[in-house]
Computed example of a mutant assay.
Amino acid sequence: MAALFLNRCSALLLVLLLTGCEALLFYPQRQLLRDPAAVGLAYREVSIPVADSALHGWWLPAQEPRATLLFAHGNAENISTHLASVYWLPSEGINVLLVDYRGYGRSPGRPSLDNAVADLQASWHWLLAQGDAAPLPLLGFGQSLGASLMGVAVAREREALAGRLKGLVLDAGFADYASIAREQAAKAPLTWLLQLPVAWAMPKGYDLIDALPQLPRAPLLIVHGRQDTVVGVQHAQRLFERAAQPKQLYLYDGGHIGSFHDRLSRQRLLDFIADSLAD
C-alpha cells in the first residue's frame, strides 16, 4: 500500500514538473511588509512601463551619488523583504532602484522567465532615460534567481549598456536551470528518480553560464556562500571559470544570500564598486 502511494505521488509530481517547471521557479508575495521609510530611508515610488502594464519599484536616492545600481531580487516574496540587501548603499553614495517582477508586490501580471527578463530590460531602459541618473555610471546586482535574470537581461541589452555599465555583481547565482533542478530533485527520496526528467523539462535559453560570454565588457564580481545549501558553491566556481576578465570571485562563510548582512562582505562590495568606477 505504501509503495502504491509513493508511486502515485511520484507520477503526479512528474506530471506537475514536466508541465509546469517554469511556474515552480516563482514564489511571489503580493503584500509589501514594509517600505524604505521604515528603516529611515528617503525614497519614491516608481512605475516602469512594460508590454501589458507597469512595474512597481522603489528609488532610493543617495545624497551625493557616484553611481546608480539596479537590484534584481530572488524568486520569493518581493522588494520589501529583500530591502536588507541594499538599504545601506545610499549612505555610501549609490542610488538604488529596486523593482518587482510582474506578479510580485504591486506589479500586476504573471511571473515567467520571459517576463522577468523583459522586466529587467525595461528597468535598464528606464534608468538610461532618466535625466538625473543618466550621467552616472550604472551597476547591476542580482541575487539567486535574480542573478540569472540579471545576467540574461544585461546580455540582451549589451549594446545599450556598452560603456555605461561599470560593474556587475552576481550573488548566489546558479549556472544553469537543468543543474539546479537536478540537484534539488536529488535531495528528497520522493523525487530522487526524477532528476533527469526534471532537468530535461527546465526552460531553455535563459542559463546564466551561457549569458556570461555575451555581457558587455565591465568588471564582474561573483559572490557565494561556502555553506549555501540552496545553490551549491560549485555553481559560483563554474560561472567564474566561464566569465571573461575582468572578474573576481568572493566566497564567504555563510548560507544563501547572506552575503551583505555583515560588515566584511559589504566592504568587499564597496571596494569592488570603487575599483570599477576608477577604471
Rank of each mutant, 00 (worst) to 15 (best):
L170I: 13
R238C: 11
A278V: 07
L239V: 13
E157D: 10
P36I: 11
P28S: 04
P213Q: 04
L139A: 11
Q29F: 00
L149Y: 03
Y87L: 15
D275P: 05
Q143A: 14
L70S: 09
D228A: 14
P90Y: 06
S91M: 14
A84F: 12
D262R: 13
I79W: 02
S144Y: 00
A133M: 12
R238D: 14
E77N: 08
V169D: 04
H82C: 08
D171K: 05
P28C: 04
A23P: 03
Q130Y: 08
A178W: 00
Q245A: 15
E92S: 15
D35P: 04
L194T: 03
S91L: 10
R158Q: 15
D262S: 15
L149T: 09
K166C: 06
S47D: 10
D171E: 13
A185D: 02
A37Y: 06
F240L: 12
A38M: 05
W88K: 13
L16N: 07
D176V: 05
L277K: 12
H261V: 15
E183M: 05
F26L: 02
L269F: 10
A51F: 09
I257A: 15
S47E: 14
G205H: 01
A23T: 10
A129H: 09
T81H: 02
A2E: 06
A188N: 07
L215H: 00
Q227L: 10
C21Q: 01
N75G: 02
Y250P: 01
A133F: 10
L264C: 15
A274T: 14
S107M: 00
L128Q: 11
L60V: 11
L128R: 08
V198S: 03
L6Q: 13
D279Y: 15
R266K: 13
G163Y: 03
Q143R: 11
R238S: 14
A116C: 01
M202E: 09
H125L: 10
S53F: 01
L113N: 00
A37H: 13
G173Y: 07
S80C: 05
L32E: 11
G151I: 03
I257K: 06
H224C: 02
Q245M: 13
Q195N: 02
L239I: 07
I209N: 05
L14M: 04
G151N: 06
V198Q: 01
S53T: 10
A72L: 08
A51S: 14
L83W: 08
A23Y: 03
R106Q: 13
A186L: 12
L69P: 00
R102G: 03
D52M: 01
N75R: 03
H235Y: 02
R268D: 10
L97T: 08
S265Y: 09
V152A: 08
A243F: 01
V86K: 12
H224E: 07
P135F: 07
D275E: 12
V15Y: 07
A243S: 12
D171S: 09
R106A: 13
H73Y: 06
L215Q: 01
A162F: 00
L41H: 12
P216I: 08
P90M: 12
Y252C: 11
K204Y: 03
Y206P: 00
G93W: 06
F71A: 06
L269T: 12
E77W: 07
L221E: 06
R242S: 13
L269E: 08
L55T: 11
L33T: 07
G93S: 14
G142K: 02
P135S: 08
D114H: 04
V99I: 14
